[in-house]
Design a protein around this nucleic acid. Structure first.
Length: 305
DNA sequence: GTCATATGTGGAG
DNA sequence: TCCACCTATGACC
């Protein structure tokens, strides 16, 4: 279920469960056995997300090593999941279910300075299962930096600069609906946030980037900066404003596989929550696109703005 | 049971 | 622009 919010949430959860603890790493399904062998027994320092990329930092091997492969680069692809579990100390870690490509289990056997290894802490039982991911590689800091450098600004990162994205958008004739999905323009937005933020900002998905005023882009960015942290907090994508919510309108709450309340994503043919027109759909660059042709007109009246 | 579909990306033609 | 990749799920027979 991976748009940027999923990865940032995951980085947070992995940090809470594993930071400062030694991890046993295995690859029950075998696909990432080589990575697992290199990771096993090292201390997990922390985890960080950048767009849809996740980097788990490990203590160097040997400890203090600066140039080694200290980062696990994970990309979940379309169907990957990474489930983090905790349970009271002493709880039994269950056997893997399904195709687990990488499993982390916190190992406190040598915590509390009982030997001469790096200081580690003891904590609750913790394990995490990675399934379906397309990338799980050990990389150096330089390789991590190279991946990060290819990405546009991430609305979930406080230091992100929206002007960097706008420089790409204003020079492109490609539709804004395509540019939003281009991770080198903007990092972390996927198919749900794309559809929803364009709806909320009344922008037609096919509007060329080079026709977008800076103010419209800033509004779009600000909307993402407001929405995506909610996704991190809740683990779902909810984009419907209070006045259009099920409670406010009396309609039935929506519950589908991403769980959130949305305006147009996967609502083809259903009435727009604002104007009642049937939600339209089309395929853009191989991905399903959804919008309301009344709320998101092709030509926007500049006189009224 | 079979099949289509999915919040993604990269590569071939 | 299509296709492959990977797993899980829901629709339908």
């Amino acid at each position: 279920m991976p748009e940027g919010h999923t990865l940032h949430r995951l980085a947070r959860d992995l940090g809470v469960a594993f930071a400062g603890r030694r991890v046993r790493v295995s690859s029950p399904q075998g696909r990432f056995a080589a990575s697992a062998a290199l990771l096993d027994g090292r201390v997990l320092v922390g985890a960080e997300a950048w767009g849809k990329q996740l980097f788990v930092e490990l203590e160097g091997d040997p400890p203090g090593e600066l140039d080694g492969e200290r980062f696990v680069h994970v990309h979940l692809g379309l169907i990957g999941t990474f489930d983090v579990h905790t349970a009271p100390a002493g709880a039994v870690v269950p056997d893997p279910v399904g195709q687990v490509r990488l499993r982390l289990v916190a190992d406190d056997a040598d915590a509390d300075g009982t030997d001469d290894d790096a200081a580690t802490t003891a904590g609750p039982t913790a394990w995490a299962d990675l399934r379906g991911a397309i990338v799980c590689d050990l990389v150096t800091a330089a390789q991590r930096d190279a991946v990060v450098a290819r990405m546009g600004p991430d609305p979930l990162r406080p230091d992100a600069d929206p002007d960097r994205a706008f420089e790409a958008i204003r020079r492109s004739r490609k539709p804004i609906g395509a540019l939003l999905m281009d991770q080198s323009v903007l990092a972390g937005v996927g198919n749900v946030y794309r559809a929803e933020v364009l709806f909320r900002d009344r922008l037609h998905p096919l509007r060329p980037g080079n026709t977008l005023q800076r103010s419209r882009w800033q509004a779009l960015w600000d909307d993402l900066v407001a929405l995506m942290p909610q996704g991190v907090a809740t683990g779902r994508i909810d984009t419907v404003r209070p006045e259009h919510s099920p409670v406010a309108t009396g309609r039935a709450p929506r519950r589908d596989d991403h769980g959130g309340e949305v305006y147009v994503y996967r609502r083809t043919g259903q009435p727009c929550l604002v104007c009642g027109r049937r939600v339209a759909t089309a395929v853009l660059e191989g991905r399903n696109l959804f919008w309301c042709s009344r709320c998101q007109p092709v030509f926007r009246s500049r006189a009224v703005g």
